[in-house]
């Protein structure tokens, strides 16, 4: 149930914790925009994402479109499941063979 985004500016790492669905889409978008604006964002840690839906998927796609250099890391099972179902693994930095980074 709990959700928050934690941005570690030093490491340039943004971590999403909890659900990443339509209910948090608006808040997450703000966090993404802010992190991108700081020019320090290098990676997105997805290890703590517990729930993931199409809205979440779109956010990742949009992030990739705005900042292709940002690496998506540590995809959680919830994320992997959706990416494999939609066949978007390579687009979103998931190695199709290892099933995770």
């Amino acid at each position: 149930m709990s959700y928050f985004c934690h941005f570690n500016a030093e490491q340039g790492c943004l971590r999403v914790q909890g659900e990443l669905t339509i209910y948090q889409a608006s808040a997450t978008l703000q966090a993404f925009r802010a992190a991108c604006a700081s020019m320090q964002l290098t990676q997105l840690d997805l290890s703590q994402v517990t729930d993931f839906d199409s809205a979440g998927l779109q956010l990742l796609l949009a992030l990739k479109k705005s900042a292709p250099e940002v690496q998506l890391r540590h995809h959680s099972d919830a994320v992997i499941k959706v990416l494999s179902l939609t066949n978007l693994m390579t687009e979103l930095d998931l190695d199709p063979l290892s099933g995770g980074v």
């Binding site: 608006s26 978008l29 779109q58 796609l61 949009a62 066949n87």
Partner: peptide
């Protein structure tokens, strides 16, 4: 995917960049 073998091609071209994204609209 439960009915049989499913191959999915997701078209994400329509997804805009963060600045233009409406987080609750569907672009897929």
């Amino acid at each position: 995917s439960r009915l049989g073998q499913l191959q999915v091609t997701t078209s994400s071209q329509a997804v805009p960049c963060l600045a233009e994204l409406e987080p609750e609209s569907c672009y897929l």
